[in-house]
């Protein structure tokens, strides 16, 4: 029960990442309605105020919008979601490259490795 959270990092940042991920991956598609703060907080096993903070942050980046009586919705702006997706993908690949470089791989070797590992499938 609860989301897997790392308790030595701020919780709201992790909630933010997780919801961003769910929007990017289409779990919450563009224009869809999000659960209420309280529902989501109970699901995650976190304080509603913390969830609220994550939501405010998402609102500031225009990724979600609040319609006063109807609740919160994912943005209709597909370009915005696509940009976020690319940014997250870039972060992931930078991390991957860094870890591979720590293992002593050069840039060329990393690309070759990816090719041989994943291309046949």
């Amino acid at each position: 029960m609860g989301w897997k959270l790392d308790s030595d990092r701020p919780i709201y940042a992790q909630l933010l990442e997780r919801i961003q991920m769910q929007i990017v991956s289409g779990h919450y598609p563009a224009g869809s309605k999000l659960p209420s703060v309280r529902e989501l907080a109970a699901e995650a096993g976190v304080n509603p105020n913390t969830m609220q903070k994550a939501f405010s942050e998402l609102e500031r980046s225009a990724l979600i919008q609040t319609q006063r009586t109807a609740g919160r919705f994912v943005t209709q702006d597909a370009v915005l979601i696509c940009q976020l997706r690319q940014r997250l993908a870039r972060e992931q690949s930078e991390q991957f490259f860094q870890s591979m470089q720590q293992l002593g791989y050069t840039q060329k070797e990393i690309l070759l490795f990816l090719k041989t590992e994943f291309e046949e499938e």
Binding site: M1, G2, R38, A41, A42, G45, V46, N47, P48
Partner: peptide, 17 residues
């Protein structure tokens, strides 16, 4: 531990804001 999770959930969803 399993009931603890449920209880925490209960606490979160039952108190007035």
């Amino acid at each position: 531990p399993a009931a603890r999770d449920y209880i925490l959930k209960t606490i979160i969803s039952n108190y007035q804001e």
